[in-house]
Design a protein around this nucleic acid. Structure first.
Lengths: 243, 243
DNA sequence: AATGCGAATATGTATAGACATAACGACTAT
DNA sequence: ATAGTCGTTATGTCTATACATATTCGCATT
């Protein structure tokens, strides 16, 4: 339910004086419609008194539920059950090699092309590059047990990733190099579907016209844009998560 | 950076004695490669002493970074910078009506079919229905400003959603009815791409063969499976998030 | 060497108390 | 009426302290 699976335990297994217990009790009341959507719930101090625990414990529980989108909290205004429950699902975005290894399959990798070039306008804008500036363009294919898994098409701003021009991207994927050398960047992510043209179909070993999942990602190190990548997955690939 | 946008503030704007300040400082050291991936970082007590704050404050900051996938924490073993950074992206899954309204467009809705029937084997399994049991099958189309937005194809287990058989699903979408009457359920979510066949193309107003994003969702109220839904979005739809 | 056990240790969590901060609402001055 | 002020209130956060719990490590025993 929360955005933090690591702290998640089976609901109700914890005593009521733990924050997980308080969370379970509040969630129970919401699901039992004691507190229907839109309702104001008692304030932290009252709940703490009622449940026989400290206010900080109630705060921890309610904060967790608010992060999950179950509650709306505002200072002074109090806490209410979300009327329009925008649920939050946490996607795990692993390094491609790790994702494949986690399935118990062998990761293979082939660099298709590597060149300095002026990116298309949309990419240049995404990387905040000046007019006519060049960037490193890398195309590579990742394999799982010799089957094509995902096509990586990436532009990298060289000044924002010092050393990348000297990296041996035939041996280590740009995905992995960046993770090691510019870790923990922030950015945007978007999903869509694309139709395989002849080129894509050949690379990903599917029929032309097949629908493929595509993930576009931009990455910034907090100050500068580092890279913009398009990942096109093999036919049938599904991205899974729990809510 | 973290999985909890609500608690997010501009990094570095908070003083160093707040948990956000501690988080910013730790993140700075990681990005500056003072603490490269895999490194053990000082324990909470030492960090608290160094930064001049209480251990609880450091704990709050490090817990947040662990939830974001930046740190790995284990009791007794200590805290280390994640070697293989599995980043967590938070997807916001709004009610369809709200998603369209948030774009400033008008939400339209048309019920295509509604019938009690025995679901296909895969769906029956997903809903944990006994052999041959019937479920409510609803197909409906959502519009944004009269343009087809998403096709909702849903099976609902009637015993798990009391009252649904009497609901006027021509007026209120099953999506919304469920949100109101069985709120805050948990479940699974998966994304994929599908090719528009003639039927889909007609409904979603695109050419046959177009690649479409599809979201499959199962929902449980904690005890029983309530519904399994497939949402097929219009051509060009993109699901966006930040990381 | 392998095994089992207990001590040490880092994180996880609960608590009481305090102050910070945002925002609602009433009251006041224009 | 309207705008500004200020007290009240609920959440947000920090602190110090204590105890819980999971692991790891070293030591002793087999």
């Amino acid at each position: 339910m929360s955005g933090a699976p690591p702290t998640q335990t089976a609901q109700g297994t914890k005593g009521p004086r733990t924050w997980q217990g308080v969370r379970a009790e509040v969630l129970r009341r919401i699901r039992a419609r004691d507190w229907p959507p839109g309702t104001m719930i008692p304030n932290e101090a009252d709940l703490a008194r009622e449940l026989g625990c400290a206010r900080a414990t109630v705060n921890r529980a309610l904060r967790d539920l608010a992060e999950a989108g179950v509650l709306d909290r505002r200072r002074r205004a109090g806490t209410r059950v979300a009327a329009t429950p925008v649920r939050r699902a946490v996607l795990q975005i692993p390094v491609i090699r790790d994702e494949i290894a986690a399935q118990g399959r062998d990761h293979g990798y082939r660099l298709l092309s590597r060149a300095l070039a002026a990116p298309p306008a949309a990419t240049a804008a995404a990387l905040a590059l000046p007019e006519g500036a060049q960037a490193l363009h890398v195309r590579a294919l990742h394999f799982a047990d010799a089957q094509p898994f995902v096509l990586e098409d990436r532009w990298i701003a060289p000044e924002a990733a010092p050393g990348v021009l000297d990296a041996d991207l035939a041996r280590i994927s740009a995905n992995e190099w960046l993770v090691r050398h510019a870790p923990f960047a922030s950015g945007t992510l978007s999903f869509g579907a694309v139709t395989a043209d002849a080129g894509l179909a050949g690379l990903l070993d599917c029929a032309p016209g097949t629908a493929l999942l595509r993930l576009d990602r931009t990455t910034s190190d907090g100050a500068r844009m580092v890279t913009a990548a398009a990942l096109t997955y093999h036919a049938g690939y599904r991205l899974r998560t729990t809510i």
